Simulated assay, not measured.
Amino acid sequence: MNGFERRALQIKEKIIETTLEMLKTWDSNKIRIADIAKQANVSQVTIYNYFGSKEALLREVVKNYMTHSFKEFMENMNGEYTFKEKIERIILQEKEYSINSLTPFLFNQLLTEDQEIAQFVEKEYSEKVLPAFFQLIEEGRESGEISSKISTQGLMMYINFSMKYSNEFLDSIRQNGNMDLINEMVHIFFYGICGKP
């Protein structure tokens, strides 16, 4: 990569990072290319040259964000961790992304409004994340950390139910600032409200 290509890549990454930062506090429908250009300290023409449109830029930002998230998820799945450590790392990863990055509402809005983003996320999830999760469940069964009384279908329903309401839980944590609640929820996930480690 020559100097010009390296500089172009740096500018493109700066625009993507700036847009992601703005999406944490701005409504995506109200962000204008002029706002992004000002924050990134580049011209509007530069943004149009690299991305073509605001919609294409938002698409690139979400894809970049999700690619990073999926990569970290797979590193946790393939790492030399126990079953419990893998689950904890996934939960902490979700906490980090949910609290420090795109809001669940905005992310769902972008998925609903952009078919290309929705297809990208669905493909990554079905081809990478779901198979890795099923493998993790099997590891948990083999190590005795998942009860033989619980079916894979039952466990997936429980996980999906938990994820469905995780946004409200994380919003509650944001409001009261008590991060210890994350650890309590990890404990309840593994042991229920009466179980002991």
Rank of each mutant, 00 (worst) to 15 (best):
R141S: 07
K63F: 08
L102T: 05
I87E: 08
L102G: 06
E122F: 12
E88K: 15
E127N: 09
V61I: 07
L111I: 06
V121M: 03
N49H: 11
K123G: 07
S53N: 07
K54F: 14
M74D: 12
H68R: 12
Y65F: 15
M66L: 13
E72N: 06
G140K: 03
K84S: 13
Y48I: 15
F133N: 01
E139I: 05
I36D: 02
L102I: 07
L106I: 14
E113A: 08
D35K: 02
F83N: 06
E85K: 05
F133P: 04
K54H: 14
I137N: 02
E142D: 14
K63Y: 06
I137M: 07
T67C: 05
R141P: 13
T25E: 05
E124Q: 10
K63P: 06
E55A: 13
A118N: 04
F105T: 12
L106P: 09
Y125A: 14
W26C: 12
A118V: 00
S98P: 04
S28F: 14
T82S: 14
F107I: 06
S126P: 00
Q93V: 11
N29E: 13
I36C: 05
K128Y: 06
F120M: 04
E60Y: 02
R89Y: 08
Q135N: 12
K63T: 04
T103D: 05
K38H: 13
E96T: 11
A56G: 02
E88V: 15
D114V: 01
S98Y: 10
I91R: 05
S98W: 05
F133D: 01
I91H: 09
E72P: 02
L102H: 05
A37R: 01
